[in-house]
Amino acid sequence: MQLVANIIVLSAIYALISCGYVLIYRVSRVLNLAHGELMMVGAYLLLMTASFTSNPMVAIPVAAILSLTMGALVYLLLMRRMTGESVLAAILTTIALGILLRGLIVIFFSAAHQYPAVPLGIHSSSVQVLPGARISSLSLILVIVTALVYASLFAFLRLSRWGLRMRAAGQNPLLAAQRGINLHGIYAMVWAIAMFTGSVAGMLISLDAGLDQTLIMIGLKAFPAALVGGLDSLLGALIGSLIVAAAEVLLIQYVNPLLADVVPFLILIVMLVVRPWGLFGTREALDRV
């Protein structure tokens, strides 16, 4: 039972992170390899706001809004210039951005392991969720937040006017632009949302486990989850996260703890050989890149 709880928590973490990869890829066909770093920036933004106020109800929303703004700025100031460039150039720009952010974070916040939960006065307690399974209260919040984020993303993309525009831009940017959709606006918005969801994940993880550069690795490991499910499918990201998390938890438990950082990539290789477009991805997406 404890294993089941662990799998659910880990898959919620991966799902909350991987939806950022999916959103950006689905709408703008860019693979954002700086997502792990952007997520870490979100967590450090919380550390920064926590140094001004000890009220979590202020610190967390302010950090979230800052990360939303920063996501849009990343697109408007940097990624916008890469539209029309080759696939490689766009990926490399995101990698370079990631390196830059890593450096800047150490310069401004130091590389030490820090706890944003302490100034906010948040204590994690253990909760009984299933018979014989306990998880930390923050993990429970994380699972709930992930469910909420996915529900609102589905609703937003399906029902709202902006969601419709977003899907249109993802399917056929030329036609979408012809119909008067502001592509740059849409792309900026999707980068903002992706950074927001990633940052929320980063904040919740760092409130629970503390904060340092290892957060990037968690962000990178969420990428195979997105790819296994299909890079342009939100449902796929959810299922993919579940598969990757289950495989990781079980292999660590029964085979070798050192496998933790490799398992997601092993699954990724198998998936690329068998079905590169993922479980729920569209096949044409593969030919377009």
């Binding site: 210039r81 150039a89 370079a96 951005l97 830059l100 890593r102 450096g103």
Partner: peptide
């Protein structure tokens, strides 16, 4: 002294971006 490492990263990222954007 410890932040030289970080400055490397930052400068490296910045230069890479500059080349990608301005001098492909």
């Amino acid at each position: 002294a410890g932040s030289i490492f970080a400055m490397n990263y930052a400068a490296f990222g910045l230069i890479m971006i500059a080349f990608l954007v301005f001098e492909p």
